[in-house]
Amino acid sequence: MTSTEAKFGLFVPLVSQLDRAEDVAKLLDAGYDLALAEPETIQWFALKYANATPTTYAIFDTFATESGRSAHLSGKIAEALMAKAPKLLSPAPEIGQVEVLASKVKSSSDGKTAGLSVGLRVLIEAKPEKTQALKDFLISALPLVEEESETLVWYAIHFTGTNKFGIVDFFPNEGGRSAHIKGKVAAALFASADELLMGAPDIAKVDVQAAKVIA
């Protein structure tokens, strides 16, 4: 039986060329259909950044094993993305390999977006001597996230081989996102920013275009 605990992941921003945003969206729609057929891709999200210029999308996906991630990277979604990237994207996509430090995954629907509507992408960089401390902080935040009924999906991630981390989370509606932004996790992160981080968190609001969620 395939494990559904996310341990490994990929985060891939996709910046659309001028007037090609609709084509990128169609590519992501096709990617969703392909992701459904990948048993080792346990969660897969197509995102659109709110109010970004140029239009920017992203793919975030998770796997229980390194072999599952490797199979995805050599599969049909990656093949289609790389084949069409020169005509649709600028710059070429950078594939960020990540470790999933902690996660909460709760799907409320089986539809195309799995009951998710909006989300946040937060990038943070640890001071070199504080990398382990930031990792520990993110892991310790999970119980606070578990208390948030409208934070349905939440990941703390570490970009492999760097002192860069992230939080990727999703909500059923704007009310859930707003509550999270005003909640205990955000307050704790900003309270610790001067001690742990190189600079202010980079926070982007995203809309969920499609989501495969196995909880």
Rank of each mutant, 00 (worst) to 15 (best):
V105F: 00
I139G: 06
A52F: 07
I157T: 03
G161L: 12
G119L: 04
Q17F: 06
Q132C: 07
S149G: 12
P86N: 09
K130G: 10
V105R: 00
E38M: 13
D29T: 11
V12L: 15
A37S: 12
F60W: 09
E150N: 14
T65H: 04
A71P: 09
A71Q: 13
D61A: 14
L10N: 05
W44H: 15
A156Y: 00
F137C: 06
Q43S: 15
T65V: 08
A126L: 07
K104C: 03
K112V: 11
A156K: 00
L144T: 02
L89C: 13
I42H: 09
V122T: 10
T53Y: 11
A156Q: 00
T113G: 14
D19K: 10
Q209T: 06
V12Y: 03
V122Q: 00
L10E: 05
T151Q: 01
E22V: 10
L14I: 00
V208T: 05
A46E: 04
K184S: 15
L27M: 15
I214Y: 05
M82Q: 12
P39E: 13
P91K: 11
V12H: 02
A21H: 07
S70K: 12
A35W: 00
A187H: 05
L81Q: 05
L18I: 04
E38I: 05
V185E: 07
A215W: 01
S3G: 14
A6Q: 01
T113E: 07
G68M: 10
V15F: 08
L116K: 03
S90D: 15
G68C: 12
K84V: 01
I139D: 01
H180M: 13
K48V: 08
S178H: 06
L123R: 13
G176I: 01
E195D: 15
V98A: 04
G75W: 04
A6Y: 00
